[in-house]
Design a protein around this nucleic acid. Structure first.
Length: 710
DNA sequence: GAGCACTGC
């Protein structure tokens, strides 16, 4: 194996780190930064005064890199080198290099805000701008001022965004470490295709017929398009004249491969996708952006880039999520192209003109912090109770909009996490201890008061694991699906939360048999995950727990509480920021919030109407999602008397007080000025119905209209 | 009467 480029810079790196508290390392793919930086600093003695922490945005990365480094140092995993991810801590007293997810480091800083056990903190893959890494960047800036004598912070990034990060850390040095990527030739289309699936197909066939051997990676937006593409490509290849070109196999690659295929397809992917193709056979891998960073497929020589990605975004002014097809950024486009140059020189077919890349694409993807609801993050920051930190003044690399921060404060106030002056409450502090989104954390705390903690643990775990009751993957098994659907409990008409509880209880009665999940079309993976979450939550709430926490005790609870009244009441408290009232004359709802929205119960809900065909007067919802229309997903019936205290709170809510009173106007300017530099990307917020292509077309037209206005 | 990209505590 060739010497990793980064090792040639060892002296330079050590020297720079010795002289500066913060250093930015720009290391391209293949530079070895993730495995070598920690070892270099270990060699230079930084582990004598503390541990070296290396954060990763993904769990697998934390595990595999730790394993690799342990191997290189000839030590056993969990001793000198260890890792910590949720549910799994493989470190010991001996551990001096610790890989962990960014979320884990955030959790650690909750109990130890100065992170004193660490002599070095490396934030790896910072360019991906995960929500947690962005918050860590802000915390690190504060920390180095307080621990300047004994803390070193390294921030690694793959793109040339180093200047920005350096500026954020008052002009800290930036080191560039080259990677070992082969050149990739970029070929642009002369115009935007009107039908991007067809265009991908045509390009793929062209490559297959004309280009020498080498595998092809095709980036598309979602499962539907991928399935369509796989089908059409296989068909076309079969119709090619025998012997006119080499054989081919086509694979789909996305995050939610059907559960019944998962077992086989993990073999498929590992053995067939991740090993070289048989001789004289070309592999086509049709993937979502999962293949951009999370999964690396070796042997790719050709990349076909549609130029689009599906992105989830949060709109703070409506409290609604939407899943939109948006243009990728230049960073993303280059990342995709780079996938063609890992083993030898490659080619990237960009299905958009050069001018689109140059003029329309954003430099970088909008960071997650500007696309998410910030209630959880704001609660986290408030719970650190750092007297020197004001949320609205918190120093973010890219600040979220003031609107988004205010939305978070309103939400937190409505669920009692902060008081009317924006100060964190005792309830809020308890909520922050729980690895749950704020509404679910609040539900658990209220359930504890009401004596239905066991049931609430189950519901929050199921929601937290995003267990889907009726997966849509079994198209060719229509009969079986219907049968099994009727076997599952239905929430007794009260709604989806209750159904989730009942489903988990059924699984408990089946002794947590994985086959029970498969028989009922439930993803084994997500059910197992919810079991892990439940266990973890149980351990945390044990301290405050009143009564038994096991699943059976929740079932006994039901004997005395047939209507799930206590649980639904706890949910009503927890979702005080996510309530809706039915309209008088029909079954539509309007949300009870800062800005009321007209919404409907999602058709997948098990919520039942009464004899007159009327849905409950009041419901709580887990999420608002704007697809073809605005829908409430995961709904539960509540009673008016429980809603009233929350309505009163809503009436007297005052955002000026919540955001810190008089000081707010001053902060206002700071945040708003910064926000102007990072506008939201063009999004499809109107929920235009129709095919993906028509959505893309519509998004493009809106973009051009806006451009013309300017 | 709908349909979901990807992560993570």
């Amino acid at each position: 194996m060739a010497v990793l480029p980064i090792l040639q810079f060892e002296d330079k790196i050590a020297e720079t780190v010795a002289e500066n508290p913060v250093v930015v390392i720009i290391g391209e793919t293949g530079s070895g930064k993730s495995t070598q930086l920690s070892q270099i600093l270990h060699r230079r003695g930084y582990t004598r005064s503390g541990t070296i922490a290396v954060t990763q945005p993904r769990r697998v990365a934390a595990v595999t890199v730790a394993r690799r480094v342990a191997f290189e140092l000839g030590s056993r995993l969990g001793e000198e080198v260890g890792y910590a991810i949720r549910f799994e801590d493989r470190t010991s007293d001996k551990t001096c290099i610790k890989y962990l997810t960014d979320g884990c480091l955030l959790r650690e800083s909750l109990s130890n805000p100065e992170l004193n056990q660490y002599s070095v903190i490396i934030l790896d893959e910072a360019h991906e701008r995960s929500l947690n890494t962005d918050i860590l960047l802000g915390l690190m800036k504060r920390l180095i001022n307080r621990r300047s004598s004994n803390l070193k912070v390294l921030i690694t990034s793959a793109t040339l965004d180093g200047v920005k990060v350096s500026r954020f850390f008052s002009g800290c040095p930036v080191l560039n470490v080259p990677g070992i990527l082969f050149p990739v030739e970029k070929l642009y289309s002369t115009e935007r295709p009107t039908n991007y699936v067809e265009c991908c197909l045509k390009t793929a066939l062209d490559v297959h017929v004309r280009e020498p051997p080498g595998d092809v990676l095709i980036f598309m937006t979602g499962q539907d398009d991928i399935d369509k593409m796989v089908f059409k490509l296989e068909e076309k290849i079969q119709n090619l004249e025998e012997g006119s070109c080499m054989d081919a196999i086509v694979f789909p690659l996305h995050g939610s491969l059907p559960p019944e295929l998962q077992a086989i397809s993990s073999n498929l992917i590992i053995i067939r996708v991740f090993s070289p193709a048989p001789p004289n056979c070309r592999r086509f891998i049709v993937a979502t952006n999962i293949a951009e960073t999370s999964l690396t497929v070796d042997g790719i020589v050709y990349v076909i880039d549609s130029g689009f990605v599906k992105q989830r975004q949060y709109n703070p002014s409506t409290g609604m999520y939407s899943l939109d097809i948006v243009q990728i950024s230049r960073v993303q486009a280059d990342q995709r192209a780079g996938r063609a140059g890992r083993t030898r020189p490659g080619k990237c077919y960009r299905l958009y003109p050069r001018t689109v890349y140059d003029e329309e694409f954003l430099d970088a993807t909008i960071p997650e912090i500007q696309r998410s609801s910030l209630a959880g993050s704001v609660l986290y920051l408030k719970s650190l109770s750092l007297s020197d930190i004001d949320i609205l003044k918190f120093d973010f690399l890219d600040p979220p909009s003031r609107e988004s921060l205010e939305d978070a404060l309103r939400q937190l106030y409505l669920i009692d996490a902060i008081d009317e002056n924006g100060q964190i409450t005792e309830i809020g502090k308890a909520m922050a201890e729980l690895p749950l989104e704020p509404s679910l954390a609040r539900t658990l705390i209220e359930a504890n008061e009401l004596g239905c903690l066991s049931q609430a643990l189950t519901v929050t775990s199921m929601l937290s694991a995003e267990v889907a009751i009726r997966p849509t993957h079994s198209k060719n098994k229509e009969k079986k699906r219907k049968q099994s659907f009727y076997k599952l409990p239905d929430g007794s008409g009260w709604g989806d939360h209750i159904q989730l509880l009942q489903v988990y209880e059924s699984w408990d009665r089946a002794d947590y048999d994985p086959n029970w999940c498969t028989d009922n079309d439930l993803q084994v993976r997500s059910m197992m995950f919810s079991k892990d979450v439940r266990k973890q939550l149980s351990q945390i709430v044990q301290k405050m727990g009143k009564g038994s926490l096991d699943v059976e005790s929740g079932m006994r609870q039901k004997q005395s509480d047939k209507d799930y009244k206590k649980l639904r009441r706890a949910l009503c408290r927890g979702y005080g920021n996510q309530l809706a009232e039915r309209m008088l004359l029909h079954n539509g709802y309007h949300t009870l919030g800062y800005r009321s929205q007209l919404v409907q119960v999602h058709p997948s809900s098990v919520l039942e109407a009464d004899e007159d065909g009327q849905l409950p007067d009041y419901v709580v919802y887990h999420e608002l999602i704007n697809t073809s229309r605005p829908f409430m997903r995961n709904v539960c019936a509540v009673e008016i008397s429980w809603v009233q205290p929350i309505s009163k709170k809503l009436e007297k809510m005052n955002i000026d007080k919540l955001s810190g009173g008089s000081g707010a106007s001053e902060n206002n300017e700071i945040i708003e000025n910064k926000t102007i530099n990072s506008p939201m990307q063009a999004v499809d917020a109107s929920g235009t119905p129709g095919s993906v292509d028509s959505k893309i077309q519509a998004a493009r037209e809106r973009y051009l209209a806006r451009k013309a206005k300017r």
